[in-house]
């Protein structure tokens, strides 16, 4: 479903992705972890071309992202993205945040879009917040609205970039639960996170990135119990000790 073929990316002279090769299958849940600055965000932002790459190829459902005839807008509509900082539209209510893209990009009628949005707000556990503005929602509620906004386009893939890193500890679980449910329903997911409990329970595969490379890759069991690289061991001991 998602395929990276020798992908390289630079920011100026900084080589942030170094020859990445990766396949994510349909229905697979992949967790990406690694130290800060290792290129995790960059990796998943390349999937819907929020960031361009300089060499190699990324394929989504067999479509090449470098193809000049690719309809990038249509492709992005199929890939949900959830940001660390939520990025809800502050001038719109939760309901309007969710219905905007279905109405404008999919040309769905307002009543139909609102019905979808109402169902999604129920699914993420905040049916009573439809009329609230982002500024009046807690971080956990905002992130759940952001997930509902992404799901409203009925994406085939969901990407998460540290979705719980900006949240107070007591709100992390409500967001992780929504994500676990989604994984249970068979969504294809790539999740950058340091929530190792979530990774252990939900991930099919865990990638460990360092300095722009994937240096370890495996099932949760081998990843946690039998990591091969010393960098991974070091990282795990640091992150699991607190």
């Amino acid at each position: 479903m998602i395929e990276f073929q020798s992908v390289n990316k630079w920011y100026g002279s900084l080589h942030v992705l170094r020859g990445i090769n990766l396949r994510i299958e349909k229905g697979e849940v992949v967790v990406v972890c690694g130290p800060s600055g290792s290129g995790k965000s960059t990796l998943i932002r390349c999937i819907n071309r929020l960031e361009p790459i300089q060499s190699g190829e990324i394929l989504i459902d067999g479509k090449r992202l470098s193809d000049p005839s690719l309809d990038l807008t249509a492709l992005r509509a199929e890939i949900g993205f959830v940001f660390q900082q939520f990025n809800l539209y502050p001038h719109l209510s939760a309901m309007e945040n969710i219905v905007l893209a279905p109405m404008k990009a999919r040309k769905i009628s307002r009543p139909e879009a609102e019905e979808i949005a109402t169902r999604l707000l129920e699914r993420v556990g905040i049916p009573d917040k439809a009329a609230s503005y982002p500024a009046n929602l807690s971080g956990g509620q905002q992130q759940r609205v952001a997930i509902a906004r992404a799901l409203a386009m009925q994406p085939k893939i969901m990407l998460f970039d540290e979705p719980t890193s900006a949240l107070d500890p007591e709100m992390i679980n409500e967001v992780l639960e929504v994500m676990s449910d989604l994984a249970g329903e068979g969504m294809t997911m790539a999740v950058v996170t340091h929530e190792m409990g979530f990774a252990r329970r939900v991930a099919h595969r865990i990638l460990f990135m360092d300095e722009g490379q994937i240096i370890e890759e495996g099932s949760p069991q081998t990843f946690f119990e039998n990591p091969s690289s010393p960098r991974t061991k070091q990282f795990l001991s640091k992150i699991l000790s607190h």
């Binding site: 992005r76 949900g80 940001f83 990025n87 905007l100 893209a101």
Partner: peptide, 18 residues
Amino acid sequence: VARGQAEAAMSTGLTPAQ
């Protein structure tokens, strides 16, 4: 306007003009 706003909108499939 924060850059994340445009990124969020485009990632839901809105065109640059929308």
